[in-house]
């Protein structure tokens, strides 16, 4: 069996379910009646090989190996009937997972074909810079949550905490920062997030202020605009500001 395994292209599997489907197909096994002992052995051989070659973090494969061994053990136990006198095959759940995965794996090849078909076509995309738009912060009106998260990740990098072990209680709460931002927005129509960060010294205050912005965004107390990814965020008054 080892010899045969070596002939498998080791990187062709997307995960344990993919490998199991391969083994079932290769050995022409019946998916209704999977020979658990055989497939567990083949699967473990493969995982050992993959581990030797440090192919991937084996986590998902180890989890499946454990599932297979659990099923194998349960198959050895005397069959116990449940309340309805129906005998549940310990392999049922695995079979359902394999079939469900197979549906999407098949669809994947359709997507791959569509991709190949569309690849040679290029869209006409006009320049995004529009000279008539004076306020360039308004270009990206439709800021997505994901963009905001990326920008935050980028900005917070400057706040690496020194590795110390003193524990100090920092007095900063979400509602405090909401109040703080409200105060600033009373005085000024537009705030720069990067500008705000300059005032803060600790990572915690930055995080809590960011959460406060998200909270206010949710309540429509503020609006957030950004001209491009990783650029500064501009905070202005929202429709329910001051309510």
């Amino acid at each position: 069996m080892k010899n045969q395994l070596h002939r498998i292209d080791l990187e062709m599997f997307e995960g344990p379910l993919d490998l199991l489907l391969f083994l079932i197909k290769r050995d022409e096994l019946n998916i209704y009646d999977i020979p658990i002992a055989q497939i567990t052995k083949d699967f473990l051989d493969y995982v050992d090989l993959a581990k030797e070659l440090k192919l991937y973090s084996a986590g998902d494969f180890v989890l499946m190996a454990a599932t297979l061994m659990k099923i194998k053990a349960r198959m050895l136990l005397p069959i116990e009937a449940n309340g309805d006198d129906e005998i549940e095959d310990p392999r049922t759940e695995l079979m359902n997972m394999l079939l469900e995965y197979k549906r999407y794996k098949e669809a994947t090849s359709t997507f791959s074909e569509m991709e190949r078909f569309e690849r040679p076509h290029y869209y006409h995309i006009p320049a995004t810079w529009n000279p008539q738009q004076e306020d360039n912060t308004a270009i990206l009106e439709d800021v997505k949550l994901y963009d905001i998260m990326l920008t935050f990740q980028y900005l917070i990098k400057n706040y690496e905490e020194p590795a110390t072990h003193s524990v100090a209680v920092e007095e900063v709460t979400l509602s405090e920062q909401v109040g703080f931002l409200n105060g600033l927005l009373q005085a000024k129509a537009k705030l720069s997030f990067a500008g705000l960060l300059e005032k803060f010294e600790s990572r915690l205050v930055v995080v809590v202020t960011f959460l406060a912005i998200l909270e206010m965004l949710r309540n429509r107390q503020v609006k957030v605009k950004q001209s491009k990814l990783f650029d500064d965020l501009f905070i202005s008054r929202g429709s329910t500001f001051g309510n």
Binding site: I31, Y32, L99, E100, K102, R103, Y104, E106, A107, T110, F111, M114, E115, F117, E118, H121
Partner: peptide, 20 residues
Amino acid sequence: YFGLNSVKDLPRLREVEDIL
């Protein structure tokens, strides 16, 4: 990217029964 007019134009996903 996939040249579709809407997600409704995606080919139907095969039913488990068909696969079996």
